[in-house]
Design a protein around this nucleic acid. Structure first.
Length: 481
RNA sequence: GGUGGGGUGGCCGAGUGGUUAGGCAGCGGUCUGCAAAACCGUAUACGCGGGUUCGAAUCCCGUCCUCACCUCCA
């Protein structure tokens, strides 16, 4: 069975066929680094990370590009504000903060957030400001072909002429005439309010460092242009998959498509969009102020559980964040890991060669139906536990399958938080607990269950859970004691 | 006004005509000194009203509610 993906542009499931046999080029929109990431950003990255991993699993050589928008109105605004009289600095926004320092600082925080849940770094991570030359070339082509024009006023802007491109609206299935004008639309030097900026002329008050020379005067790039210029540079004029959040479909992706196609490029062959993360059924976003940070999630559950939760709804569905959701994921994941601990006490080399269950493969091939794939994973865990309970040899093979499924979903690659498990502190703790457990074993031997239970309860109150197994007591450190 | 999604059992969340999604939380049981873990069993379901069909959560019509985008947004 072939991999099928839902393509926004044609609004249907399409069998995936790469442009070049054996290779896949994937571009997905990263963040505008003007502030800290929230859960929605991480969800999107996890969705496309799983796509990349699945393509790789299917044998494709995948080239992944995720852009960094390191210059835009908000970045300049926030930087500008940090120089103003009476500015109150915060940890995130210090005083006298150059725009490039601000952008790079948040870029690193974004990367830390992606890393924390095991998102593989893309092949390339280009920044908008590093591709001004390529953008100029694209603007020039658009002006030459009559699809772009310098502003009619003296702003120094250059606009894309939406009426010059009759396919405009094809991605989101809208016609220009039906689009509602922005209530606060500033017509500036536009022929039509819906024309969008390719190049923004330098404005008085904006820093000199945020302006580049161009055939149309000093200025800086418009938002949409970078993705067209960079995807083409790194992946070619036509490439396989373009991804991003659903909220980017319009205007961002529509505009990207228009400017690239109008310039004669084939551009993306499949468009994939992930659903929004909501909070109390409302889209999580900075402007609404209902964001939850990756750090906050990580205080509620382990990083693997966070990734599990982010993947637990289909990538095109909305994912509603609510307190308790992460604990549920943690419980589910714990059952999986308990099984693996029991069935694969030591690293087994046979694990790597295990084949994925066909139902799992089928689910993933069906537009990355991760919830259905997880159902297969859980069924395998149950079968494995049953096998273990009856000393059936099948357990090891099932465990190997479970391991492989976790691998493909990227859950195994989530780094464990450093600290608790190793080092002198852990060593000392281990000795203390083992001593207690030895006493408890003695008490149990003597049928002094009251004392044995007292020891267990005492350990429980400091966050150490004791469980009796056929091979003796084992203990685990539980957070949040 | 335009475009595109949704409304599934206590909660989350798959599923597009007939046979168990799955998880979490409950309840009962097995195991255990007691627990824990694990397994077994179990209840609660498809927004509302019509229609098509032998049969609909799934198709059609109507209706209500809701979300996203059209302005920066993963």
């Amino acid at each position: 069975m072939a991999l099928r993906l839902y393509d926004t542009k044609t609004a249907q499931l399409r069998e995936f066929q790469p442009l070049e046999p054996g290779k896949v080029s994937l571009y997905y929109c990263g963040a505008t680094v003007q502030g800290r990431p929230h859960v929605g950003h991480v969800r999107s990255a996890v969705a496309f990370d799983i796509l990349a991993r699945w393509l790789q699993h299917r044998g494709y050589q995948v080239t992944t590009v995720r852009n960094v928008t390191d210059i835009d109105d908000k970045i300049l605004e926030k930087s500008g504000a940090s120089y103003a009289e009476g500015f109150e600095p915060t940890e995130d926004y210090p005083a006298a903060d150059p725009w490039f320092a601000l952008a790079y600082r948040f870029e690193q925080i974004f990367n830390a957030a992606y890393d924390a849940v095991g998102v593989v770094r893309p092949s390339y991570e280009p920044r908008a400001t590093g591709h001004i030359t390529e953008m100029h070339a694209l603007i020039t082509r658009l002006i030459e072909t009559g699809h772009a024009y310098p502003a009619l006023d003296d702003s120094g802007d250059v606009y894309f002429d939406v009426h010059s491109w009759e396919r405009y609206g094809e991605l989101t299935h809208q016609s220009v005439d039906d689009m509602q004008d922005a209530p606060d639309a500033d017509p500036r030097g536009k022929r039509d309010p819906r024309d969008f900026a390719l190049w923004k002329g330098h404005k008085p008050g904006e820093p000199e460092t945020a302006a580049w020379d161009s055939p149309w005067g000093w200025g800086r790039p418009g938002w949409h242009l970078e993705c067209s210029a960079m995807s083409t540079k790194y992946l070619g004029e036509t490439f396989d998959i373009h991804g991003g959040g659903r909220d980017l479909r319009f205007p961002h992706h529509e505009n990207e498509l228009a400017q690239s196609a109008a310039a004669g490029d084939g551009f993306a062959r499949y468009w994939l969009h992930n659903g929004m993360v909501t909070y109390a059924a409302e889209k999580m976003s900075k402007s609404v102020g209902n964001t939850v940070s990756p750090d906050q999630m990580l205080t509620e559950a382990g990083p693997k559980a966070v990734r599990y939760w982010l993947a637990s709804a289909h990538y095109r569905s909305e994912l509603d964040y609510k307190p308790g959701a992460l604990q549920e994921a943690e419980s589910a994941l714990e059952r999986i890991e308990n099984f693996l601990d029991r069935a694969l006490p030591e690293t087994d080399t046979a694990v790597a060669s295990a084949e994925l269950p066909s139902d799992f493969v089928e689910a993933m091939d069906d537009d990355l139906n991760v919830p259905a794939a997880l159902a297969v994973l859980h069924q395998t865990v149950r079968a494995g536990n049953t096998a273990l309970n009856s000393n059936d040899d099948a357990a090891a093979a099932l465990a190997a399958q479970v391991h492989q499924m976790l691998q493909v979903l990227g859950i195994n690659d989530v780094p464990e938080p450093a600290g608790a498990d190793s080092g002198p502190t852990a060593e000392a703790l281990s000795h203390l607990v083992e001593a207690q457990l030895a006493q408890r074993a003695e008490a149990k031997q003597a049928k002094d269950f009251a004392r044995a239970d007292a020891i267990r309860d005492q350990l429980a109150t400091i966050g150490i859970q004791v469980e009796d197994t056929p091979s003796g007591a084992v203990w685990t450190l539980k957070g949040g004691a």
